[in-house]
Design a binder for these strands. Structure first.
Lengths: 217, 217, 217, 217
DNA sequence: TATGAATGAGTCTTCATTCAT
DNA sequence: TATGAATGAAGACTCATTCAT
């Protein structure tokens, strides 16, 4: 009845959150150079001075948004419980999950692109990023170890490299869907990407499989 | 009477080229929002009005640069002659070549990123892009057909999808090397990427191999 | 029931003082246009609303600081007891004192400069300023009278003008020391200024001395 | 007939001059912190980007204005020909001139005040300032030498110090006229300042005169 | 053809000031 | 009394674009 109720005011933490969310969205959709502080302020429902008071300047805000994108990614990644799965299923699950991740959180791939366009100037200044991703790598390492122990995977595969492989296969079609559509006339939609994830899983497993010749030799 | 005609006649084409090269470099390194017309003019060694007179406005210049990046890419791709290779070698060669391509022409991946950040607004307006890439796809198709005929590859693989797979494996570590370095502490250099290309080739071939079970069934 | 009353009662006066001191320092070092309310609040150890509640706005605070600078100056000036000195010694003492005054209270010359840059807009609105300086003028008047009576000074010298002369000789090298150093390569330090004060005293006394010709005529 | 004719456009040198004049006026009347680039642009009849294009930023513009104030001062000072005057008349002339100088070019005293409020941060970065003032000092030196040779002045007076003395006596009442008016109720106008200059001349000459005792001893 | 000169419309950032508790 | 939270208005500076020659 009382009409549009403004989001809670006079709540520093909440305000900072709103700014951060708005910033992440703006930087992800517009890039670093194209992002506008005005738009962030408006989207967050605050005045511009708030942004400067809480985050310093545009660059610092960008840094916070970049870090936030990693933090949010991590929160999603922790959710998968692969312990009770077979090594193959675990890998398939991780590939599916990664693809879904990139699709459902488009600001993440965008932030990666934006930051790499800038040659990683900012990412270098963020601490703890290593920590943020390490649980995922550990999880992969465990799956690999298990697979090797069970004779399903060949040994000597580095979990980080494996992750980069999985990410590669999922990242490219999601991140570049707009140009791919035009250049190759491919209707990149969720169904297409789902098939892609399946193929990717197959490819990764094929790559992990022990050499058949070795066994028969 | 016709006054000083120091500047060579027919400079028009050369001037346009210099502008285009400078624009490609600027857009690729700075992104669409971060690119500066001033810098392009200076790098091209022309005055700003020249740019406007030749290209209209910044957006049109960007479009020309984007198209140019595809044109230059195509010129490189035409060079590989895979006809005399075995299907496997041909695939390996294409993977190696693609990786080398992305590494040696960083403006291409950058332009892809930039344009996809913009949701492909501009790429849609460029005609002929399909033509530009189609020779590559045809080439891949021929290799696939040959491999299937020789019983080395399984049938039913779409050449476009195969290209996307190859591109995926090469694109991600090149395009995201700055963030990868920081986040995973991986020293992504040419040697690392070369190993990557080898793994990628192995993976793709593994994916193309006919089902062993099918043969034994 | 009355809750936590940690902050001492009757802090009001002390708080106002701290604000005033901080303001004086800020306005003197930064000028009117360069002064920042934030800095004053921080230096005073209070929140900004306190300043506004006590002083109204920045302009009023500036007015208070300007007046305060005159008040503090007066307090210093009252301290000199010249009654028991010879008229010459009294003048010398006043010159020395004035120079020392300007040196040791740099905010005073700064406030004068600041206010005169503003064409005295604010000083006009302060009452009682005349009273503040009058004791000094009276004192000078007495010294002059005594000197004339004793035949050491010529008559007809206006004490206000004499004060302006003394102030002139002391003010310029102190107030403009930074530019003088650079423009004339003069190492203006305390020793240099002390010599200056001695010369100034000599000059003033020379100016006050009865015309030798007149006596001999 | 053709109405208000705008000042010459498309003339870089003239535009720079207009900006510099406007800047000098603005900085002198508003101080460094109070000066507004907008106002300078408007007063100069140009758009703001012109200012930035020609002078870099506000600080550089301030530097140019400060230097300009010294340059203009020097141009005035070169005009006095004291060679044909008696040493006493030459000194009197210089004092009169200096006073007139400060009165008729109020931006000079204002710039001195402004810059000294800033502790000379900028003046240090200007080269050649020494050169600018040195002709005046040389001139004073010659007058002193001549006076000493003619037995009218005592030896050992440093020309720079003498200039500082003259400047002191003229600067203070001009620069601080607004506060002096209020604090001492003195009607500081041109007539008053003229009398001041005469007194100042008398004082300086008295200071330069050889010790009578020395002569009689 | 070519360009130095010029600018309207932003874009980031700051500051005096007020609100809500 | 006291202050953390908040902002309208303005300030310095930039940028794509056009004008005049």
């Amino acid at each position: 009845m009382s009409g549009n109720q403004k989001p809670a005011r006079r709540d520093a933490a909440a305000t900072q959150r709103r700014i951060l969310d708005a910033a992440l969205s703006e930087f992800a959709t517009q890039g670093h150079g194209g992002a506008r502080v005005d738009r962030i302020a408006e989207a967050a429902g605050v005045s511009k001075p708030m942004i400067y008071s809480y985050f310093g300047d545009k660059e610092e805000l960008y840094k916070a948004a970049l870090k936030e994108s990693y933090v949010q990614i991590r929160q999603g990644e922790r959710a998968i419980d692969t312990d009770h799965m077979s090594p193959e299923d675990a890998i398939r699950e991780l590939v599916t999950f990664t693809m879904h991740h990139f699709i459902s959180k488009p600001w993440f791939t965008s932030m990666l692109n934006t930051e790499n366009l800038r040659k990683g100037v900012t990412v270098q200044e963020i601490d703890d990023l290593n920590d943020i991703q390490s649980p995922l790598i550990s999880q992969l390492g465990e799956i690999l170890d298990r697979g090797v122990a069970e004779g399903r995977f060949r040994p000597g595969v580095d979990p980080t490299e494996l992750y980069i492989t999985i990410a590669s296969l999922c990242f490219f079609p999601v991140s570049n869907k707009y140009t791919l559509r035009v250049v190759f006339n491919v209707p990149i939609d969720d169904a297409w990407l789902k098939r892609r994830a399946e193929d990717a899983g197959r490819m990764v497993l094929c790559f992990l499989r022990p050499e058949p010749d070795a066994g028969s030799g």
